[in-house]
Computed example of a mutant assay.
Amino acid sequence: MGTTQQRFMRRGVTKFYFLKTIAGAGNLPVRTELTGTNATDLSGAISDIAGWSLANSPIDTPDLGSTLTTNIPGEDKADSSTLTFYEDQAAETIETLLSKGVEGFIVILRKGDVPASKSMDVFPVRVASRAPAYSAGSDPAKFTVSFAISGTPTLDAAVPAAS
């Protein structure tokens, strides 16, 4: 492998958006959906991220001809997915946007907003819960939003072209 790899840190590069709707088929947003009033850039308020990936549960396929238990791919399941946000003392913008039961899409631009890069993941979601984190220490105030993945995610899609 003689290819030089350009490595990067996610902080400051990766973008997370919440979209209320996506009009097109395949859960693929167009540029105006990423930049319009339908979209909220959550990136600057996120302090922690968990989940946002799929795992496969293989199915064992033992047979009498071997002592080795082979397997085949089974069902895909989304990991428990959460975003932890810094709490705003003066406003409830994110709390209102992501209240329990709200449906929409989490759009992740893994390599940043690079048009045509095949690094966009789109997760259909429903907000399962939102809970504040309490601390008596000198930690910043935070709250965690848990999401139920409500449909098949679209992974490795091309970031829409700039308008």
Rank of each mutant, 00 (worst) to 15 (best):
E95D: 11
L54T: 09
E92K: 13
A141Y: 06
T37H: 04
N71F: 10
T82M: 11
T144A: 11
L42I: 01
A158M: 05
E92Q: 14
E33T: 06
L42T: 03
V30K: 11
L42S: 02
K142L: 11
A39H: 03
T4V: 14
A45I: 00
G101C: 04
W52A: 04
E95H: 08
K77Y: 14
A25T: 12
P160M: 09
F8A: 08
P153A: 12
D79W: 00
K111W: 01
T61L: 08
D121T: 09
G2M: 04
T82S: 15
N27S: 14
T32P: 00
E75N: 14
L34F: 05
F105I: 05
V122K: 07
V145A: 06
L28A: 08
K111M: 02
N56S: 13
K77R: 15
S47M: 10
T93W: 00
S81L: 07
A162G: 03
K118C: 05
S80E: 15
V145I: 09
A162W: 00
K100G: 00
V30L: 10
V125A: 05
G65E: 10
A39T: 04
G26N: 14
A131F: 00
K20Y: 02
A116M: 10
W52Y: 04
T14I: 09
L54D: 06
S129W: 01
P73K: 13
D76N: 12
T3S: 09
F85S: 02
R110T: 07
Q6F: 13
G12E: 09
A136C: 00
G44R: 06
T40E: 05
L68F: 08
D113N: 15
L83M: 06
R126S: 14
F147C: 03
A116I: 03
A45L: 05
L68V: 13
D139Y: 10
Y86K: 06
N71K: 05
V13L: 15
G2L: 07
T32V: 09
S135H: 12
G112Q: 06
G151P: 06
G74A: 10
T84V: 13
Y17C: 07
D121V: 09
D63M: 02
L97N: 00
T152L: 09
A136M: 11
T37P: 04
F105Y: 15
G51P: 08
A158G: 03
F143P: 08
G137A: 12
V159L: 03
A148Y: 08
Y134M: 10
G137D: 12
Q89G: 03
L42N: 02
E95Q: 15
K111H: 08
T35L: 13
T32Q: 13
M1H: 07
V159W: 01
A136H: 05
V159Q: 01
V107C: 12
L34R: 02
P115L: 04
G101T: 04
A136S: 12
T82V: 12
Y86Q: 02
T70G: 06
G51A: 11
M120E: 04
A90I: 07
P160Y: 07
K15S: 03
G112Y: 03
I108C: 09
F123E: 07
F85A: 02
L109R: 03
I49G: 00
S146R: 12
S80C: 00
F16M: 01
G26D: 11
A133D: 11
L109C: 10
S99L: 02
A157E: 13
G2I: 04
